[in-house]
Design a binder for these strands. Sequence first.
DNA 1: TCTATATAGATGCATTTGCATCTACTGGCA
DNA 2: TGCCAGTAGATGCAAATGCATCTATATAGA
Lengths: 152, 152
Amino acid sequence: MTEKTNPSPAVIKAWARLMRVSRQLVERAEDALKDSSLPPLAWYDVLHELAEAGEGGLRPFQLIERTLFAQYNISRLLARLEADGLVEKLRVADDGRGQTIRITGKGRETRRRMWAVYGRSIVELVGARLSNDDLETLSALLGRLRYPAALE
Amino acid sequence: MTEKTNPSPAVIKAWARLMRVSRQLVERAEDALKDSSLPPLAWYDVLHELAEAGEGGLRPFQLIERTLFAQYNISRLLARLEADGLVEKLRVADDGRGQTIRITGKGRETRRRMWAVYGRSIVELVGARLSNDDLETLSALLGRLRYPAALE
DNA sequence: TCTATATAGATGCATTTGCATCTACTGGCA
DNA sequence: TGCCAGTAGATGCAAATGCATCTATATAGA
């Protein structure tokens, strides 16, 4: 007996909707940021992690773990953020290869302004369309699609 | 009384999971295609639409409607597909501005080979993790997040 | 200690995306 | 017919992404 490898109509439908809806939502959130002359979502993700990390900051490889960006992507994104004065790079004492990234005051301010727009998008695009119960259901279902795989 | 614009924790959680999971799934599906030396997902989307359209083909603007790609993106994607011999561009009689895109035999064959890999990814990543009922529930919830907005 | 291997992060180069604009044709209307 | 706004699609240029590789430091083992 072999493994089943042909997607059922139900899986295909769910997959297609997931692909389509997630792309649409990202696009709309990005558009909202652009309309307010704010940086793209990727910047928010990084600033958010750094803001949560506080004054201790984070190492780039920790950002990679948390955000799913590729290494070279983080490297250049941080360069842009630094050029904009939103983060600062600090030499780290016990590892000469590495650095610690810390968000600056300007970075926090930018994050705050982005959140005002981004949060509004989230409410409009999702919050206004699903009840609290639906949201819980959706989160639970998506949670089961995460990697590394949760226990099945 | 003003509109609520601050996302609840439940919305934020659902949004975050949707963003993260969809990105992970796309990435894994893309990786599977790459591992088999096949073209990226975007090519599949277009070839799929064209295969469904049959011999009559589709106009580029119809592809844009169906796939959500930007106009310039479709324009260049079609150029690449044509260069690879997967589609052909036909002058259309009643509109001198436009063209009709038709999938070739090689295009159909490529689509078939992509589906063998892509379909398997879909099964592994989603089909194996959710029951049929869960899939229906997920599709329904995502359906309510589509644009243009379904009746609410 | 010396060497080999692994890890942190940067970067050169090709490809792709995004934006704005351009060309070509259409269709409405005076 | 002649003009003009609108639509279909292509494209120049700048920015971002992906891939492979590179440098520098760290760590493990002979």
